[in-house]
């Protein structure tokens, strides 16, 4: 059964004074995805998000979240969507819990639920000890965590995070990302994370889309993308043997699905149509070969990124 479509845009376009910021964007994000929305600065990521939330009107095309039209039914969209803007801000003179309570009340939560929800959310992001401190005294990282709590208060079905890790130290970034991934899993929340930090996207996202000059140049599952982009849709496996013989090379070549085998010393570089590691290992062992090491070549997002970035 197909998963429910959470976000769908059809030819979504936005022009600002004749410059096209977002160009006929067709985006589909399914329930439970952690979608990494990649792209260099000024690629149109934030503009797309603002259109998804109904804060900006598209020049043409439509955007839907859970079937609600973002432009015509923004209130319904905003009820189920949490948003952390880039450089998120809070009321500095008010306490952390008051800031969150304001969000809760704006979402129409009954008063008895407000305090409970605020307490729980601060607990999850580890800010309960400073709940009654003014946000003005918070560090950047604490504010980012407060922003996550701000979303939790609302308990949305979709969360859109625009550069949620900007301005935090490396360790904080890892914590933040793990927290986001955990929350998404526990609450079955679909997450759209905007970033130009590849490593972060790679860490938690299962699908990515890359926006360059307002166009979606690539979109899909992370591992599938690498194969398609760089390996021509093929998998490359590297194996190291104790002693390489032409007999062994031949028996690897005979495996169904293997396209080519290159030999360099004791290293074999195998190109195949699928991940055939198990079959290759068995073939070698059956032919009395001694297998020392086997690696599948992973495609780093960075390689993909560079490739498309250059093309664009």
């Amino acid at each position: 059964m197909a998963k429910q479509l959470v976000v769908q845009t059809v030819n979504l376009t936005k022009n600002y004074d004749k410059t096209t910021v977002v160009d006929r964007l067709n985006l589909r994000i399914e329930e439970g995805d952690i979608f990494g929305f990649l792209g260099p600065n000024g690629a149109g990521k934030t503009t797309t998000i603002l259109m998804l939330l109904g804060l900006t009107e598209p020049t043409s095309g439509t955007a839907h979240i859970y079937g609600y039209n973002s432009t015509r039914e923004p209130l319904k969209v905003k009820r189920i969507t949490g948003y952390v803007p880039e450089r998120v801000g809070f009321y500095d003179d008010l306490t952390a819990s008051y800031n969150l309570a304001y969000t809760a009340r704006l979402n129409g939560l009954p008063e008895e639920l407000v305090i409970k929800r605020v307490g729980e959310s601060l607990d999850i992001v580890g800010l309960s000890p400073v709940a009654e401190q003014r946000v003005g005294e918070f560090s950047r990282g604490m504010k980012q965590r407060l922003a996550i709590a701000d979303i939790l208060v609302k308990t949305p079905k979709v969360a859109i995070l625009d550069e949620p890790t900007s301005g935090i130290d490396p360790e904080g970034i890892v914590q933040m990302l793990d927290m986001i991934a955990e929350i998404a899993k526990e609450r079955n929340m679909t997450i759209i994370m905007c970033s130009h930090q590849l490593y972060q996207v790679q860490r938690i996202c299962n699908r990515v889309g890359m926006l360059v000059n307002g166009k979606l140049v690539i979109e899909g599952l992370l591992d599938q993308l690498g194969r398609e982009a760089l390996g021509g849709g093929r998998v490359r496996i590297e194996i190291k043997l104790a002693k390489t013989t032409s007999k062994l090379v031949d028996c690897v070549k005979r495996i169904k699905g293997v396209v080519s085998v290159e030999r360099s010393g004791d290293l074999l570089l195998i190109t195949c149509q699928d991940d055939l590691r198990a079959k290759i290992a068995k073939a070698i062992v059956d032919a009395n070969g001694l297998l020392i090491e086997m690696k599948i070549q992973k495609y780093a997002l960075e390689d993909i990124y560079r490739k498309y970035f250059r093309e664009a």
Partner: peptide, 14 residues
């Protein structure tokens, strides 16, 4: 300027 407007407007209010 404090970055609260977009967060505020992303809540379900007119």
């Amino acid at each position: 300027n404090s970055g609260t407007l977009s967060r505020l407007l992303a809540q379900p209010i007119y």
